[in-house]
Design a protein around this nucleic acid. Structure first.
Length: 297
DNA sequence: AGTTGTCAAGCTAGT
DNA sequence: ACTAGCTTGACAACT
């Protein structure tokens, strides 16, 4: 099992890999400065990961407005930052690290609106492009949710199938779907996985909020069959409810007792674990320490 | 100098 | 019909 954390890590590592700015103030100069700063931070973060035995990492938005028409061309970005891309890719590959990406709530493959769909495809293409430029194999994934319901879940599902099938192979090979906490749960994702032959990222926390009475352990069992060899072992996102907060809000910092309970429960399952705790690498360091004392890392 | 509202994008659910 | 919330900092626009 590899464990890891998401994107920004400003407290321990002292930099942010996802700096941005406002669209209204977009200039080529500003964009280039930010991209360089973000890439340099990712480089440092990858080094931090290797030092601390985090071999799973989620890259966050590091090229502002990358899929927007205002953006500097991808080819130009590749040329200007080729050394950084090369170096980061090499560090990841040489240490057998695994990378995931997770575009946000605006990336919706089943939207009935053509504009929304086109923007989503563009965004996915941009994410896939990044993993390709880092020369990562197909165990590196871009995870998205299925999307909206639009008043008819069956049609919404069929639209996802249709739109996914139209994507080019190089994108299909990278995309995985994740169960969400309100609309498309693990059962829905499993059905889509079989139909489209794409893997599912299992989000433990979302599953506790929306499920069909399958336990986490049962789900992890099924999950194992949804990943082909070429895609690697399953990816699992782990978090839990922040106390006294809106339902579905990720915890601010890790509760090691809860984490230990989870790890003990799932003892035989093989997967890579992404910690979605809001203080990122701080909690991840504690989790790693615990896993080592348990002999699991 | 400090405080507050806004930011590319969509959707759902609650008022 | 309208909007909070999804992540969260940076910056612009104010007092």
């Amino acid at each position: 099992m590899k464990i890891g954390f998401v994107g920004s890590a400003n407290t321990t590592i002292n930099c942010r890999p996802d700096k941005s700015f406002r669209l209204a103030s977009y200039t080529k100069k500003k964009a280039l400065e930010i991209i360089e700063s973000n890439l340099t931070c990712i480089q440092k973060t990858i080094e931090f990961c290797i030092r601390n035995h985090f071999y799973f990492y989620r890259i966050a938005d590091f090229i502002p407005f990358f899929s927007h028409s205002i953006s500097i061309s991808w080819v130009q970005i590749e040329e200007i930052f080729s050394e950084l891309f090369l170096d980061i890719g090499k560090r990841i590959r040489n240490n057998d690290m695994r990378i995931s990406m997770h575009p946000g709530q605006y990336t919706i493959l089943n939207s009935p609106k053509e504009g929304v769909l086109n923007n989503s495809i563009k965004e996915l293409e941009a994410n896939v492009w990044i993993l390709d430029k880092l020369k990562l194999d197909h165990t590196a994934k871009v995870q998205i949710h299925v999307g909206g319901i639009y008043g008819n879940k069956e049609e919404a599902t069929l639209r996802f199938i249709k739109n996914f099938q139209r994507l080019p192979e190089f994108m299909k090979n990278r995309i995985v779907i994740e169960n969400d906490d309100r609309l498309f749960d693990f059962k829905d994702c499993t059905a889509l996985s079989k139909e489209l032959n794409i893997p599912v990222v299992f989000d433990v926390f979302h599953h506790t909020i929306k499920n069909n009475n399958e336990s986490t352990l049962e789900s992890l069992n099924i999950l194992g069959y949804l990943w082909d060899n070429k895609d690697g072992i399953p990816m699992v996102d782990w978090s839990y409810q922040e106390v006294d907060a809106r339902m579905g809000k990720n915890a601010n910092t890790i509760d090691l007792m809860l984490f230990k309970k989870f790890i003990t429960e799932i003892s035989d399952e093989d997967f890579d674990l992404m910690l979605e705790i809001r203080d990122k690498e701080k909690s991840a360091l504690q989790a790693a320490k615990l896993l080592r004392t348990l002999g699991r890392l």
